[in-house]
């Protein structure tokens, strides 16, 4: 469930294909997110899951796997 929503958001915000959103994909290097796109992605996660993601936590989201694991922990 979380993985699907994360994929939808990354596809929408970064204009990438669903197939590119694999666990090991690096948000910046593989999916082409620049610093502002990362801010927008984090805003989208905050809206979608109704949570607040502090800057320090956002900085640790390097790959798709990092994001999914972070959200799974945060949402229990």
């Amino acid at each position: 469930m979380i993985k699907e929503k994360v994929t939808d958001i990354l596809v929408e915000e970064l204009g990438v294909e669903v197939e590119e959103v694999v666990d090991s994909a690096n948000i910046q290097e593989d999916l082409g997110a620049d610093s502002l796109a990362i801010v927008e992605i984090v805003m989208a996660f905050e809206d979608e899951f109704d949570i607040k993601i502090p800057e320090e936590d956002a900085a640790s989201m390097i790959t798709v796997k990092d994001i999914v694991e972070y959200l799974e922990n945060k949402l229990g």
Partner: peptide, 9 residues
């Protein structure tokens, strides 16, 4: 930049 971007929107 990131925080101001969020604020601005």
């Amino acid at each position: 930049g990131g925080e101001i971007f969020k604020f601005a929107t």
